[in-house]
Design a protein around this nucleic acid. Sequence first.
DNA 1: ATGAAAGCGCTAACAT
DNA 2: ATGTTAGCGCTTTCAT
Lengths: 341, 341
Amino acid sequence: MTINDIAALTGVAASTVSRALSRPERVSRVTRERIQAAARQLNYVPNTQARALSSGRTGTVAVLVSDVTNPFYFGIIRGTQHQLRAAGYAQLLVDTEESPELESHLLGKVRRSVDGVVLAASRLPEETLSVIAAEMPVITINRNVPGVRSVVIDSPDGVAQATEHLISLGHQQIVYVGGPASSWANEARWRAMRGAMTRHGLTAVRIGPFGSARASGTAAADALLNTGATGCVAFNDLIAIGILDRLAERGVDVPGEISVVGCDDIFGADFCNPPLTTLTAPIERAGRVAVSMLLEHLDSPARKGARPAVILPTHLTVRQSSGPAPQRRPPAPRSGSPVVQ
Amino acid sequence: MTINDIAALTGVAASTVSRALSRPERVSRVTRERIQAAARQLNYVPNTQARALSSGRTGTVAVLVSDVTNPFYFGIIRGTQHQLRAAGYAQLLVDTEESPELESHLLGKVRRSVDGVVLAASRLPEETLSVIAAEMPVITINRNVPGVRSVVIDSPDGVAQATEHLISLGHQQIVYVGGPASSWANEARWRAMRGAMTRHGLTAVRIGPFGSARASGTAAADALLNTGATGCVAFNDLIAIGILDRLAERGVDVPGEISVVGCDDIFGADFCNPPLTTLTAPIERAGRVAVSMLLEHLDSPARKGARPAVILPTHLTVRQSSGPAPQRRPPAPRSGSPVVQ
DNA sequence: ATGAAAGCGCTAACAT
DNA sequence: ATGTTAGCGCTTTCAT
C-alpha cells in the first residue's frame, strides 16, 4: 500500500497523490477528493521512514528523562504524551539513567530520528547543552541555560515559601536535605532556602547529597536527626517519603518532634502517613508547555526569541507532616556521625 | 555525515562501509578497522530512517498502554525500557486512553514504524487481536488470546489466595470491586474470586464496574458499605487506595470494620494509610519478559511455537488493611442504592 | 494543476 | 572480500 497504488487506482501521478495527502491545498478539489477517497478505501497509511527520509521531518519527538523509575517523570511524560498526541506527533521515550555520558550518547543517536527533544532534568554541562541546542530543536525542563528554551518550575520560590512556613511555625533549625549533586534544581532549591533563612537571621544547614530514591530517605533521616533540627525541606517527595518511613521506624513523631516538607507533590504525597506537606508543582503542565514551545519553534524557527523561558509557579500544600516546632529543645543528636556539609 | 563520506575517506565502496558497520564479519579485518576508525573519527551516526527504509527493520518497538496515568504501567514501562535499551532498541510510548478504536487506529499508524509491539492491557476484541498478531510481531501483557504470544501475571491465582486469606480471617461476605468492563484481567480476577468463594460454600458479590482511577474509589467504597460486606478485593491498588480514602472520610475503620485487599502492589501501596494488603505482581518483570519474548521472536520468527505464553506468579503481601472479621454482624447498609451486579 | 525525474541514506542482491 | 546496481516510499524541484 504505497502512493503508487493510489496513483494507479486514481490515474494520476504519484507526486500528485503525495501533494493531495500532504498539501491538500495545492491540488484541485476534485482530484484531491478522489485521491483521498482512494486512500481511505485502500486503508493507506503513509510510511513514516520514507517520508522522513525525503522531507527531513520525522513527526517524532524524543523525551529524555533521567530515571523512568521516578514518579516525578511520570507526570512529565503524561504531559508530553498528551500534547504530542494532540499535535499528531509520536513520542520516543529515553531513559538516561542519571548519566551525562549516556545522555549525550543517546542524544547523538536519536538526533536524526526526531524533530526535536525535550530534556527533562538534563545532567549535561552548560556548554554541551548550548552546543546541542544550536544543532537541533531542544527544550529543557527545570534547567536554565542561556540561549536554550526552557520551562522551569519555580520550586525555588516554593522552597522559600516552605521555609517561611516552617519559620512561622516556630522552627529555628531547619535543614535542607539535598538531592543529586548533578541536579541543577537541587542547587537552586538550596540557594532559595538559604536565602529565606538568612532573611530571618537564621542559618540554613544542608545535608546530602542523596539520590532521588525513597531508599535514600533512610540515610537522610538518620543524618537529619543527627543535626538536631526540628524541621526539614527535602529535595523531593521521594526522599521526603523515605524520611517519613525511617522516622516512623525510629519512633520519631512527625510533626510532633520534627516537621518534614517535600517538593513536587508526586503521586502518593497526599496519602502517605502522615500526608506530606509539600510544594505542589504543575508537573504535567510542565510537560505540556514544554512540548507546545518545542512544536511552536518547529513550526516557525524564525521567531527565535519567542518565549525563550517560561516559569511555572508552585504553591505550598500544607498537610500533616508539618506542625509547630516542639516547645522544648529537641533531644541531642542521637547517633552516628554528621553528614553536614 | 553519510556512509558515502566514509567511503570517500577510506577509498572503498559505500556498500562495503555499510557491511563493515552492520555485519562486521563480512569484511576483512583491515578494511573493517579502517572503516570503523573513520566512522568514529567523523562521528558518524547511521540514519535510522534510511536504514529502516531499505532493510525493513526500524530498531524500534512500540509499547501501548491504556493509560499513562496509571502507576501500574509505570512498572511495565520501566521493564520494557530497560530491556529494550539493553538490546539497542528504541521505545515508542503510546497511550491508547482506554479506547479500542484509538488503540486500533494508532496500531495502524505505527505499524510500519516499528519492528514489533508490546500491548500492555489491550482493549481490543479477540478477533482483531488475532488479525493484528498475524500481520506483525505482537506480544500482549495480561491478555490471553489463542495464537498470540503473551505474558500474563497470574493475578487470578493471587485473587484466590487473597480470598482464602480473608476467609481464614473469618470473613464470610466478601465483595469483588470490579475494574473496567473492557479489561480481560478484570473478568479473570472475578472468576477466580467467585471460584474460591464457591469452594468454601460462600457466595461472592461483585460491584462495579469502576474505572481504574483512585477517584473511582469513592463510589466503590459507598457501594461496598452498602453491601454490608466485611471484606473486599479490589480490581487494583488504585481503586483500593481510593476506597481507603473514602472509608477514612466516612469514619469507617480499616481493618476493624472492613478489610480491603488490593491488586498489583503499585508504588504507594506500602505507604498508604493503612498500608495496603495486596497481591504483589512482578510488574516490571512482566515488561522485561514481554520484550525478551518479542525480540526473541524477531530474531528467529521460525520457532513460532516457542514460549507462546508465560505466566508470572504473584504472591499475597499482607499489610495492615486486612484483619479479622468484626465479631458482631456488621451494621445494616448505610445509604444510597446498591450497585450490586 | 499536474507530471516527470531526481534524490534522501541506506541495504541487498548480484557481479566480480 | 569488495564493487555495482537497484531500489525502499516518499517529497520536491523543475517542467509542462
